[in-house]
Write a protein that binds this DNA or RNA. Sequence first.
DNA 1: CCTACCGATCGGTAGG
DNA 2: CCTACCGATCGGTAGG
Lengths: 227, 227
Amino acid sequence: MHAQLAPDLAPDLPSTQTLSSAKRPRGRPRKTADERDDGNRRQELIHAAAKLFHRKGFDATSTRDIAAAVGMRSGSPFYHFKSKGALLHAVMEEGMRSAIERQTRALQKAEQSKTDARWVLAILIRNQFDVLLGPGSDFIPVMLYESRALTPRQRVSLVQLQGDYEAAWTPILEALHTAGQLRADVKLARLLIFGALNWSVQWYDRRKGASLDDLTAAALALFIHEA
Amino acid sequence: MHAQLAPDLAPDLPSTQTLSSAKRPRGRPRKTADERDDGNRRQELIHAAAKLFHRKGFDATSTRDIAAAVGMRSGSPFYHFKSKGALLHAVMEEGMRSAIERQTRALQKAEQSKTDARWVLAILIRNQFDVLLGPGSDFIPVMLYESRALTPRQRVSLVQLQGDYEAAWTPILEALHTAGQLRADVKLARLLIFGALNWSVQWYDRRKGASLDDLTAAALALFIHEA
DNA sequence: CCTACCGATCGGTAGG
DNA sequence: CCTACCGATCGGTAGG
């Protein structure tokens, strides 16, 4: 039955200082009672998890990796999240809420100037590239490429948020279709367009060639026909 | 040091008959000496692995899953492949070779009729959807979505094949660009178009709504402008 | 190709 | 949140 005869010889020490060395001071400081930063530690875990899930994938990232990245011991993430899957879900939910918020803000700015449908689409596409490829953009890629690991229950709550996000796109695409500037079936066009944008996560390199504005211009030129 | 005191109580028996029950007869038949089907067993492993890697992902698929799917014991895949990663690489290589071959054949047929660039692009897109979504299409999705698990050395041999595959697209896209039917920068357009097509793996459902011809028509309408 | 394993690692937990 | 674990599983191997 697999008896454990002795304690592990080298138990769960965070592998000495690989990345982000000076993250926290040496003897990790005891919290004074009125310094509860519960939400903060939770947020730190979510951010570290997003980064690691993005770089290595969900299955290839251990909860020990995540703990080490924020200076915790291996068991401690489970004080904040009841499972690794719950942490994944939190990453995705946070990513979607933030993406929706940014999209809403971008659209508000747009309404103050022109209401040209083509221009609004440009805003939406540019914001999407930002969320996918901009600085700190680990959350949405994780959400796009790791959803297989979700439970069905977790998935529904995210599909809801995705619906909210996409809701802003449909009327614009329909307006462009009516104006003859978007020729394909609107529903399929939306799926194909999202694919074109989302796939950029696989090939875009910040340090090389094109800027996010270049990408936006290319996408518009590709999808939108002359009136 | 973790002593193993007794043999596993339930050692590696393929979990009783879940999928593909009648795969091989009960007492698996001993091979007579002149019935070497080495290549066959290897192919079976590659196909089973493609299916499982596609459905569950590389990390979430165990070599035991794969062995069980072809009626082998847990250690036996390593007689054919020196590692799980080598099996993944074999899946991808097989997928690319087959995709290139199908693309070449499709183009040969096309040349016999019209040489209209738009028509050739339709052939290429339709073939791509076939390879991504048609029957038996597990290989290319695995190659697209699991390449993170490859070693750098394995990756280069595949990038080469991908280059061969894409080589057929570039002159067509350039011709369409010159003719004013493709407005975006050709290099970015190619990446965006591939994204639109490849992403269909995430949402397309054989049993619902659109056919592969519908998808092809929508993609053409989306990307190609009037002359 | 099977038998019989091994060492490593992983998600998670009880108790403080 | 840490300490000190556990049971399960995994990729892989020696020997036939």
